[in-house]
């Protein structure tokens, strides 16, 4: 049923798009049909797929690296209260600094290549996952911890069987946030460092007013975002089957 509504809204969007194309002229806003034709062209030339491949490679590498670092650090910070208290203020400070501010420094140190791009994405996706993991570990139900103590569980067992599972929903929420920010940073990285991937196409077509092609790239980015967050949402519901009963 929800798909019918979603499809209905898509139709509405396309209608608005057509109206906008008429209102602003097709040199500024291309019609859906022109955009579709541009997409066919780009796919036939192979440019879209190679750009998408390049973007996904840096995006998924940076994101995977961020998740792989953020979860253990968040868990350790939550598990050792003193360490967490010491570090949290720096983590929050880093999270609040616009990551774009680091790009010149990153370019000076790492150059303009793939490494620099992956690092920019890593930096963007790291903080939401880390902060959410940390918060999830701290948000454990103290009553459940006491119950586990009362049956004679060791500290390690309480951490593994009570604290970590209860942090999972937080971690997955953080991963979803991180995935979105990582995608934004992918485009930012491709614009600021060596121009490549979808961000690169965006710059080329935007600067040369090839709006139909430009629109194809924007829509492709939106679709990547949808696919990634939907995959994580699916993952989330699978993990939290017990929640469905409530």
């Amino acid at each position: 049923m929800i798909w019918v509504y979603r499809l209905g809204f898509l139709v509405l969007l396309v209608v608005l798009w057509i109206l906008a194309a008429q209102r602003f002229g097709r040199n500024v806003v291309p019609t859906p049909l022109a955009t579709f034709e541009a997409a066919q062209r780009l796919v036939a030339e192979g440019r879209l797929m190679s750009a998408l491949g390049a973007s996904l490679t840096v995006y998924l590498s940076g994101y995977a690296l961020a998740v792989a670092c953020a979860i253990p650090v968040g868990v350790v910070m939550g598990g050792f209260r003193l360490l967490g208290k010491t570090l949290e203020i720096y983590v929050f400070a880093l999270a609040a600094t616009p990551r774009v501010a680091f790009i010149p420094l990153i370019i000076v140190i790492m150059g303009l290549g793939v490494d620099a791009k992956i690092f920019i994405i890593f930096l963007g996706a790291l903080m939401p996952v880390l902060i959410n993991t940390y918060a999830g570990v701290l948000a454990v139900d103290e009553e459940l911890v006491e119950m586990a103590r009362s049956v004679g569980s060791s500290r390690q067992r309480i951490f593994i069987s009570i604290v970590l599972p209860s942090a999972v929903p937080f971690v997955v929420a953080g991963m979803r946030l991180g995935a979105t920010i990582g995608l934004i940073n992918t485009v930012v990285a491709e614009l600021y460092t060596a121009v490549s991937g979808l961000g690169g196409l965006l710059a080329i077509y935007g600067n040369t007013f090839r709006m139909a092609e430009y629109f194809v790239v924007v829509i492709t980015l939106a679709m990547v975002g949808v696919v990634v967050t939907e995959v994580l949402r699916h993952f989330e519901t699978r993990l939290a089957r017990w929640r469905g009963a409530n």
């Binding site: 009553e143 459940l144 119950m147 049956v151 004679g152 599972p165 017990w242």
Partner: peptide, 18 residues
Amino acid sequence: KPGPNIGFVFQTFRLIPW
């Protein structure tokens, strides 16, 4: 010492939800 020889029933059940 908390352990299997002392059972504890809490007012709020304290079951592991997952």
